[in-house]
Nucleic acid binder design. Structure first.
Ligand SMILES: [Mn+2]
Ligand SMILES: [Mn+2]
Ligand SMILES: [Zn+2]
Ligand SMILES: [Zn+2]
Lengths: 143, 143
DNA sequence: ATAATATTGATTTTCATTTTCAATTTCAAG
DNA sequence: CTTGAAATTGAAAATGAAAATCAATATTAT
């Protein structure tokens, strides 16, 4: 999905909630849509401020909440005490492996694991709505 | 493992670190060893205060850090903003499924999933040191 | 007993997140 | 183009859990 269609989704979400499309929201969303990392609020604010000095932290925070609500952003907690956001992946859900030395993040998909999760839950009478799977270890560069 | 041997492990850990065994530490550890839930610091403090009014939050906090360091306690973050502690399980590592309605926590072990995780990491050149797997959904009581 | 060292618990600090609020902007109606 | 209601903004304050500080107290070896 390209930035334009994402912006359309955001705008129609705002409309359904009786919220307004503003230049700040648009700009923050645009910058976010162009990032392909797992970005923190501080990092995003820094990027946004480069061209738009007067945008505040609170607006970035609120915009990311909106993007998360409408499914265009996914919030992640990798245990470093900071919430990070990533764009809704093209190719569906993925999980993460994080280097405990250099903090590099790699992504992977494993349909077998997903399936076994649902089965494990079923055995306990649970229905799975979502899950969090994070592997921690050493990346190729850190041995 | 019984509380007595756990206390022995704690005491020898303290010794190696040049730390002292105290009545507060012993009491907090004893109460913790007897819990079989995923307990928060606040909850543990409350339990401890029932018989020992003068023990402070900071000592409970520090004791749980010691227990975590020496492997007798495992700290967990289930996304409610509070760190929870559980006793080192008898039967090895397990993962969790949490009810998003009533917060009930169930545990499960799945060797196949563990194995697939290592394989998925290997494909990316990573070595897994530890992992976090949490399923979120509805428990049998909450449909 | 003495001195060195560790512990305690109240308090303060830290820090990310969330909320508040007065000023500003947007937008539909006249 | 005005007007006024409603939403937005950004600075600042509040929140809350975790971590650190520190003076008073307790422990330990000599
Ligand atoms: Mn990702
Ligand atoms: Mn458990
Ligand atoms: Zn690395
Ligand atoms: Zn439930």
């Amino acid at each position: 999905m390209d930035s334009v269609s994402k912006m359309d989704i955001l705008k129609s979400y705002l409309e359904t909630k009786g919220l307004k499309s503003t230049s700040q929201r648009d700009y923050i969303a645009d910058i976010f849509f162009k990032t392909n990392t797992h970005i923190s609020l501080e990092e995003l604010l820094k990027k946004v401020k480069r061209k738009n000095t007067n945008i505040g932290y609170a607006t970035v925070y609120r915009t990311m909440r909106l993007l998360t609500e409408c499914g265009l952003a996914i919030s992640r907690q990798f245990g470093d005490g900071q919430t990070r956001y990533e764009n809704l992946p093209e190719d569906g859900h993925h999980d993460h492996i994080i280097c405990i030395k250099c903090s590099k993040i790699a992504e992977f998909q494993n349909q077998k694991i997903e399936q076994l999760q649902v089965e494990a839950a079923k055995k306990l009478g649970f229905t799975v709505v979502n899950h969090k799977l994070e592997l921690y270890g050493y990346c190729p560069d850190c041995v």
